[in-house]
Computed example of a mutant assay.
Amino acid sequence: MVALSQERLVSSADAPAHRSSQPSFDRLFRLASLGSALLVLIVLLGIIGSMIYGGLPAFREFGLGFITSSVWNVNEDQYGAWVAIVGTLSTASIALVIGVPLSLGIAIFLTQLCPPWLKRPVATTIELLAAVPSIIYGMWGLFVFAPLFANYVQIPLSNIVEGMPIVGTILYARTPSGVGILTAGIILAIMIIPFIASISRDILDQIPSVLRESAYGIGCTTWEVVRNVLLPQAGVSIIGAVMLGLGRALGETMAVTFVVGNANRLSGSLFDPGSTIASRIANEFNEAVGLQLNALMALGCILFLVTFTVLVLARLLVARVKVG
Score class of each variant (00 low, 15 high):
Leu4Met: 07
Gln6Ser: 11
Val10Pro: 00
Ser12Lys: 12
Pro16Thr: 02
Ser20Met: 12
Ser21Pro: 00
Gln22Tyr: 10
Arg27Ile: 12
Leu28Ser: 08
Phe29Val: 10
Ala32Asp: 02
Gly35Cys: 11
Leu39Arg: 07
Leu39Gln: 07
Leu41Val: 15
Leu45Gln: 06
Ile48Gly: 08
Ile52Glu: 02
Gly55His: 07
Arg60Gln: 13
Arg60Lys: 13
Glu61Met: 09
Phe62Asp: 01
Phe62Val: 02
Phe62Ile: 03
Gly63Pro: 05
Gly63His: 05
Trp72Ile: 08
Trp72Gln: 09
Val74Arg: 15
Glu76Thr: 15
Glu76Ile: 07
Asp77Arg: 10
Gln78Glu: 14
Trp82Gly: 02
Ala84Arg: 01
Ala84Gln: 13
Ala84Trp: 00
Val86Thr: 08
Val86Pro: 00
Thr91Trp: 06
Ile94Gly: 04
Leu96Lys: 02
Ile98Arg: 04
Ala107Gly: 09
Thr111Asp: 13
Thr111Phe: 06
Leu113Tyr: 14
Pro116Gly: 04
Arg120Lys: 15
Val122Trp: 09
Thr124Ile: 13
Thr125Val: 14
Leu129Arg: 00
Ala130Met: 03
Ala130Val: 01
Ala130Pro: 01
Ala130Gln: 01
Pro133Arg: 06
Gly141Asn: 00
Leu142Thr: 01
Asn151Phe: 01
Leu157Met: 11
Leu157Val: 14
Leu157Trp: 02
Ser158Asp: 04
Thr183Cys: 13
Ala184Asn: 08
Gly185Arg: 02
Ala189Phe: 00
Ile192Gln: 05
Ile192Ala: 01
Ile192His: 01
Ile196Val: 15
Ala197Lys: 09
Ala197Cys: 06
Ser200Pro: 04
Arg201Leu: 07
Ile207Glu: 11
Ser209Tyr: 10
Val210Phe: 13
Leu211Phe: 15
Leu211Thr: 06
Ser214His: 06
Tyr216Gly: 11
Tyr216Gln: 08
Gly217Asp: 08
Ile218Ser: 09
Trp223Leu: 15
Leu230Gln: 12
Pro232Ser: 03
Gly235Arg: 15
Ile238Val: 14
Ala241Leu: 10
Met243Ser: 12
Thr253Phe: 00
Thr253Asn: 00
Ala255Cys: 06
Phe258Ser: 06
Gly261Gln: 03
Ala263Tyr: 08
Arg265Glu: 10
Gly274Arg: 01
Gly274Phe: 02
Ile277Met: 14
Arg280Ile: 13
Glu284Phe: 14
Glu284Leu: 15
Phe285Glu: 10
Glu287Ile: 12
Glu287Thr: 14
Gly290Gln: 03
Leu293Trp: 04
Leu296Met: 09
Cys301Val: 15
Leu303Thr: 07
Phe304Ser: 11
Phe308His: 05
Thr309Pro: 04
Val310Thr: 12
Leu311Ala: 13
Ala314Trp: 00
Leu316Glu: 09
